[in-house]
Design a binder for these strands. Structure first.
Lengths: 155, 155
DNA sequence: TATTGTTATACTCTATAACTATA
DNA sequence: TATAGTTATAGAGTATAACAATA
C-alpha cells in the first residue's frame, strides 16, 4: 500500500527526465488543467465556469465591450460568445444593449446582480488560490503572470 | 478598413484594464490555446497531435512507463491512454509489453520508427517556435518553464 | 480487497460553414 | 462587399461508471 504509493510517486519523478518535461505546450496544458480543476469548485458555487466567469468579468469592467471584442479578447469564435451571453442574460447577470451608432453591434454590460456575483466569485477564487494553490510567492506569481500575458497575447 | 483594424486593436488593449487580464486561469487558458494552435501545424505534418506526441515522447524516454504511469504523468484518465496507445500501436510507433513481474500491467516502449518520428516532430516544433513563437529570450523562456513545472506538478 | 487495463457514455470545448441584417 | 451576430453541426477533449483479469 504505502509501497505502492511510493512506487507511483517515483515513477512520476522518473518521467521528469523525459524531454516532455521541458515542453512548453505540455506544461501549459497540464498547468491549465490543474488550475481550472481547482477553480471549478469555487466557480460552481455561483453556477459559473471559467468561460462564463471570463465573459462576466469583461462585462463588469466598465469598458462596454461588443460581442466581437469579447470574442477577440477571449480568443473564442463569435458563435461561442452568443451562447455564453444567452446564458448570462437569462440569469440577469448581463444585458445586450444595441449600439447607438451601429445597429449590428451589441454592447455587453453587467447588471448590478452580475457585478455582485462576479465580485463574490472572484473573491472565492482568490481565497481558494491562497489556501490550495501552488507555493508561489508574490514575486514568482507576478513574474509568471507577466510572462503568460506576453505568450497569451502575442497573436 | 485600416480604421476598422485600429479600432479592433484598441478594443483589445482597452480590455487589458479588466481584472481578467491578471487572472491566472484565463492567462493559462489563452496561452495554451495560442501555443497549441501553432504546434498543431507542425505536429499534423507527422499525423500527430499534442496528446499523441506527449505519449510518444514518454514511450521514447527509455523510462519504460506503464499505462498507469503515463496517465498520472499526463494527468489523463487511464481510459484515455488506452485509445492513444491503440492509435500509436497501429501505426507501429509503440509496443505494449506485458510486465514480467505483474501480468496486469503493460509497459509502453517506442519502436525504432516511433523514436524516429518523435525526433522529427520535436525538431519541427522547436524550429517552429523559433520562427513563429513569442519573443521570449532564453532567460525568459527558462524562467517560464521552471514556474510552469511547479504549477503543473503541484498536485 | 485493491489495482490495471478496458469499454461505454455523456458532457464540455473547439472548429467550421452558412445565414440575416446591417454597414 | 464587408462586418456583427446568429444557427447548426461535427469533432476533439474531458469526466464517470462499470467490468474482467490479476495482485
Amino acid at each position: 500500500m504505502t509501497e505502492g504509493h511510493t512506487v507511483k510517486e517515483n515513477a512520476k519523478e522518473r518521467l521528469k527526465s523525459a524531454t516532455l518535461y521541458e515542453d512548453m505546450g505540455f506544461l501549459l496544458t497540464r498547468s491549465r488543467a490543474v488550475w481550472v480543476a481547482r477553480d471549478r469548485a469555487f466557480f460552481a458555487e455561483f453556477g459559473l465556469n471559467g468561460r462564463l466567469y471570463a465573459v462576466l468579468s469583461l462585462a463588469a469592467s466598465g469598458e462596454n465591450p461588443t460581442q466581437r471584442e469579447l470574442a477577440d479578447f477571449l480568443r473564442l469564435d463569435a458563435s461561442q460568445i452568443v451562447a455564453l451571453i444567452d446564458d448570462l442574460e437569462q440569469r440577469g447577470y448581463v444585458e445586450r444593449r444595441s449600439s447607438p451608432t451601429d445597429r449590428r453591434t451589441n454592447i455587453i454590460v453587467a447588471t448590478d446582480a452580475g457585478r455582485q456575483v462576479h465580485g463574490e466569485a472572484r473573491a472565492a477564487a482568490r481565497d481558494g488560490e491562497q489556501s490550495m494553490g501552488p507555493s508561489l510567492n508574490a514575486e514568482d506569481r507576478a513574474t509568471l503572470l507577466a510572462l503568460l500575458q506576453r505568450v497569451a497575447f502575442e497573436e
